[in-house]
Write a protein that binds this DNA or RNA. Structure first.
Lengths: 200, 200
DNA sequence: TCAAAATACCCTCAATTGCGGGATTGCTGT
DNA sequence: ACAGCAATCCCGCAATTGAGGGTATTTTGA
């Protein structure tokens, strides 16, 4: 398998395989010895897996570009690869021409995704970011926001009163109003809503 | 310009241009009349801009796939397009062959990015999502996680006890242990920590 | 196999909170 | 000028919570 890739790459003008390794156990020496522009990384590996290795290599050699190549198409792996700093994620089923194209793209500073992988990335993006973008407005006054913020720090009302030089009673009144505006009935609920809908 | 695209598409086997419009002011009728598989969307438009239009179309016609095509390459536009539900983002400088390929990919359920756009998407991903992924581990047991979760819903302990068929006392014991493990001293603090560090 | 967890249950007391009232001041918009 | 509202202060009662004690069963790992 490895030798197949090696032959293909070396047989393609413009590409040279500077090394191939079956494990990431000696990744540091391997990288230093073969000195690649682009690493074709397999996720499924004994010992250190490809995603972990990607993180390690990126930390040690930020200039090296890493293209993940795998049979897996699941969200978690894609997610983790992106977090680890991978410069691309292509499936092993990808045609040779596309693979060489991806390597070139990655070497030129781009990031390569299969269209269906890109779809998953976009989906992940929407899943995680879109909820963050909706900032609900409950018309809280400045005081109320201030107190709500201190509540989200876990500060009990007596402490809050001391901190912002208000009477304990006043703080409790503000909290009462906050509950009304947020339609909640307890501090934990208010804090949860504040953090989930990032009102703080 | 528009006519150029129309001719190119109609001249390419497998592609048909069912309509082209200079604004998104009548997007609904336009879509209904032309009934496209894929919309090639321009961001720069008078009236409703392409990103807003993408959001509107996606809401009204979830099945229609939208490929953003623009001269802009800035992070904000890419970010917004993704949030609006775009199925691709390619530059106008993209070659014709690549553009047709992108349209096909998008029609087949994929998402199309130029390699450098994909690089920006990956960067955005790492910027916004990776920080969210650091999940602190406080060695909570299943029960504790369950109860902590209910706390983050704003449920008071007596209700939690009913809900999970435990004695009120037991729930309080678990909560005590949670406080110990999270190094907090109140429900609001625990909820705040749980949500901020997404332990839930 | 045996100790350590996890799980479950119970009690008490003081602190905190939720909720119902009532009151004053100062600013804003009509 | 006056209603409306934010902001401030106060009281009391009942419910909930935090912190301290104690016990027993089951599961789990060294």
């Amino acid at each position: 398998m490895m030798d197949a890739y090696r032959s293909i790459l070396n047989g393609s003008p413009g590409y040279t395989c500077t090394g191939s390794f079956t494990s990431c156990n000696n990744w540091k020496q391997d990288i230093e010895k073969s000195n690649p522009d682009v690493v074709l990384m397999d996720i499924e590996m004994t010992g250190i897996n490809g995603i972990k290795a990607t993180g390690l290599i990126k930390k040690e050699f930020p200039g090296i570009r890493i293209l993940i190549q795998t049979v897996f198409e699941d969200d978690t792996k894609i997610f983790e690869s992106l977090c680890a700093g991978a410069n691309g994620y292509i499936l092993k089923s990808t045609s040779l021409a596309k693979m060489l194209e991806a390597i070139t793209d990655v070497q030129n500073g781009g990031v390569a995704f299969n269209p269906n992988i890109a779809a998953k990335v976009a989906k992940l993006f929407q899943q995680f970011i879109a909820p963050l973008a909706i900032v609900a407005d409950y018309q809280l006054t400045e005081r109320e926001k201030e107190i709500l913020h201190l509540l989200t720090e876990g500060m009990p009302m007596p402490r809050i009163a001391e901190k912002i030089f208000l009477s304990y009673h006043t703080v409790r009144d503000h909290v009462k109003n906050i509950y009304q505006k947020l339609h909640v009935a307890s501090a934990t609920e208010a804090v949860a809503k504040a953090l989930k809908e990032k009102i703080v």
